[in-house]
Amino acid sequence: MQVLGFAGPGARTLCDRVAPHLDGRVAVVKRTDGVDGSQAGDGSLEGVAAAYRVGGDGDGAWSARGSDRGLGDVLDDLAATYDHALVVGFPAAAVPTVALGDADPEQVALSAETAADVDTEAILDAVADAAPHVTLDTLVEQVKASPRAHRAGAIATFTGRVRAKDGEEDPRTLELTFEKYEGVAEDRFRTIESDLMEREGVEEVVMFHRTGTLGAGEDIVFVVVLAGHREEAFETVSDGIDRLKDEVPIFKRETTVEEDFWVHDRE
């Protein structure tokens, strides 16, 4: 899923103008003004974390609101089933954002004085250039949609995450920063995936590695295998992550409470 933010005066108007030009399924996430997430006329949400209204005639129409999800949670939820998410009014988010007027977002995709000054094509390019928002669910849904899914009775997955401590005495890790050799890394991923998919009983293999800075507890890397039976699914997941770590040019810098260093220097 590609994510782009809009911030500043006219952000909503601009978002609404861009949405119809995007291919695939588009989700829009807008900041509500109410402190508790509720809007006028919606009544109280006391004691309720999430309230859904679903169309009773099976047309799929729904609306929802709640009190316990941040933007990150919502984007994670959307990532598996939407192609694009447009986000309005979250300048502090780690999302490339179109800045209008005096807006000063954390990540500026492009900036302009007013919405009328922004070329729609430039926004579509910014959407395409953004790093994709990928979760484990994104990859699981992707393999389930395989034309060979009817042959598969198993999905095995591996998730690598940022470990805070590797023992009681180990200084706590605050974050890891990953640097990737763009282009070559993607080639290596595709090679490993296609090698593993040649195995008997293995139908799909997909991998994804996040880059940039990730905090303790955040997911780093996913390997997902769709296979006929569990034995080849487990074995292929294990070989997939081993080959990824040996062959894909991605470099890891670790920041602990005491210091920061390149991990390859310590191994």
């Binding site: 690598g160 990953f178 050799y181 070559v184 770590k245 040996d246 062959e247 894909v248 040019p249 991605i250 470099f251 890891k252 390149w262 991990v263 390859h264 220097d265 191994e267």
Partner: peptide, 10 residues
């Protein structure tokens, strides 16, 4: 041309 250390292990 590219030059880099061992890729991230773990």
């Amino acid at each position: 041309l590219a030059m880099f250390p061992p890729v991230t292990g773990g």
